[in-house]
Nucleic acid binder design. Structure first.
Length: 460
DNA sequence: GGAACTCGCCAC
DNA sequence: AAACGTGGCGAGTTCC
């Protein structure tokens, strides 16, 4: 196990390496940004024109007139929850009625769609404006900090390059198109696959989790999906069936990962029902036209198995949760309990990388911090090696996003960079830290020559 | 007029 | 027992 001095050395070397990354900076397409910002102005104005013909705008204008601000949550709250007598869907942290996207969609008020469009395009515009704000000679030089985060992860600012849209296809395309390689070069991104799950295993050492990680033919998310959607007994692999990949994704993002972070069955059931099964407000499963499996709505299948309302599904997910922790990953569960008990006794804990956390933390924080921190330290160690061993290359490390490294890569060096990163991350890392007892894997994707960060294809 | 706070929302 | 972890940032708002 690593000492406190080892932890210090990692931060020291990390700061030095990241200073090189900052100096390298990344090229942005200034003319593209300017043109797109204007286009977004037009899109925002278009959405505003449409909003102005709706019930929502009518009520908003009636109360606020010339003081109306589309981005004011307090104004929107008054209009919706006082004037239009909408029933609040949930509260904010500060105890107010929420006006976030989820709550707004629940209201069913005419005009909400246009307001959300305005919000979205404004948000995208802010990213492009942020790039231009920090542009010098066609490049930006985002800062990377190692001293700001409780878990000893990194953070990024000025601009923050660690939260550029990816999930929403349109927002992703618009924002990432702005990030381009040096002339004649390519953007190369290499990321650890599933590193937080792997790192959790080096702490809890749950044998069935380790089996999943070591056996590439096994699939934890698919197996859990069978429980979640009552599909046990299939004779074909879930992934190979129509709708199977979607069910697997629902299981992964709606149940497995939230459970690892400390979520519980009530919210998991609700989110799976709303986001994947498309459970309508009537709470009638049959009315849903959500994801299909083998051509039929999965909601219909669940109805045929006696799940007729959300409360039935909650009860089912409670059993899935009990099975998940009690039968599938009991050792993981026991680790969380004992890790938390030790924290309660001592007031702190130490990561395998030597970093120490002392303070007042909740249970989920205590069990999540070591995983999140240690996973990042694997990336940081790799990045340090890459920066130091590519000195004098035409390719440069230009960024880092918690479990991935970004290069501005010369075409002649792409293959070498991929090979070097694989060697460092998949072989040398585990030699440096003997406690890495599960396989580490990286995946690479690359843009075309002179192509932007928006169009990345997998490297075989 | 600026500091501090809340809210909403993007990433991993 | 507790109930999804970590950030940065823009905008609005409140406080001094």
């Amino acid at each position: 196990m690593a000492s406190l001095l080892d932890a210090y050395q990692l931060v020291h070397d990390g700061v030095v390496a990241l200073s090189v990354v900052e100096r390298n900076g990344m090229r942005i397409d200034v003319e593209y940004c300017k043109g797109k910002i204007d286009w977004l102005d037009w899109k925002i104005a278009q959405a505003e024109r449409r909003l102005k013909a709706t019930q929502l705008y009518y009520a908003w204008d009636a109360r606020y007139g010339s003081k109306l601000k589309y981005s004011s949550a307090p104004q929107l709250r008054s209009v919706l929850y006082a004037d239009l007598h909408v029933k609040p869907f949930k509260q904010t942290e500060g105890g107010e009625e929420s006006a976030d996207e989820e709550s707004l969609r629940q209201t069913g008020v005419e005009g909400i769609d246009h307001l959300l469009k305005m919000r979205k395009y404004k948000k995208v515009q802010d990213f492009l404006r942020g790039f231009l704000r920090y542009e010098i000679d066609g490049r930006i030089h985002p800062s990377y900090m190692l001293h700001t985060v409780t878990t000893y992860r990194s953070s990024s600012s000025s601009p923050n390059m660690q939260n550029v849209p990816k999930r929403d296809a349109e927002a992703m395309e618009i924002c990432r198109r702005a990030i381009v390689p040096s002339l004649g070069c390519q953007i190369l991104e290499i990321d650890f696959s599933g590193i937080e799950v792997a790192i959790s295993a080096v702490y809890h050492k749950d044998p069935s989790m380790i089996r999943y990680l070591k056996d590439p033919t096994s699939d934890m998310h698919a197996d859990t999906a069978l429980d979640l959607f009552m599909l046990q007994g299939l004779n074909t692999k879930l992934k190979d069936m129509p709708g199977g990949p979607t069910l697997r994704q629902a299981s992964k993002n709606g149940f497995v990962f939230p459970q690892f972070y400390g979520d519980y069955y009530i919210t998991c059931a609700f989110n799976v029902a709303c986001n994947w099964l498309k459970l309508p407000q009537t709470r009638d499963w049959r009315a849903g036209d959500g994801i299909k499996f083998n051509g039929a709505p999965i909601a219909g299948h669940l109805v045929s198995r006696g799940i007729e309302a959300l409360s039935d599904y909650e009860e089912h997910v409670r059993k899935v949760e009990n099975n998940f922790w009690g039968r599938r990953f009991p050792v993981y569960k026991r680790w969380r309990d004992s890790w938390h008990r030790d924290y309660q006794r001592t007031g702190g804990f130490e990561m395998l990388t030597g970093f120490r956390c002392f303070g007042v933390f909740g249970r989920n924080q205590v069990t999540n911090y070591p995983v999140q921190g240690t996973a990042f330290h694997c990336l940081l160690w790799t990045l340090i090696q890459l920066v130091n061993r590519t000195r004098g290359w035409r390719s440069k490390v230009i960024g880092e996003i918690h479990d991935s490294v970004l290069f501005d890569a010369h075409p002649d060096e792409v293959a070498e960079l991929v090979a070097l990163t694989k060697q460092v991350a998949e072989v040398e890392l585990a030699k440096n830290w003997k406690w890495i007892i599960v396989p580490m894997r990286v995946e690479s994707s690359v843009s075309k020559i002179d192509g932007s960060w928006a169009s990345m294809r997998t490297v075989e």
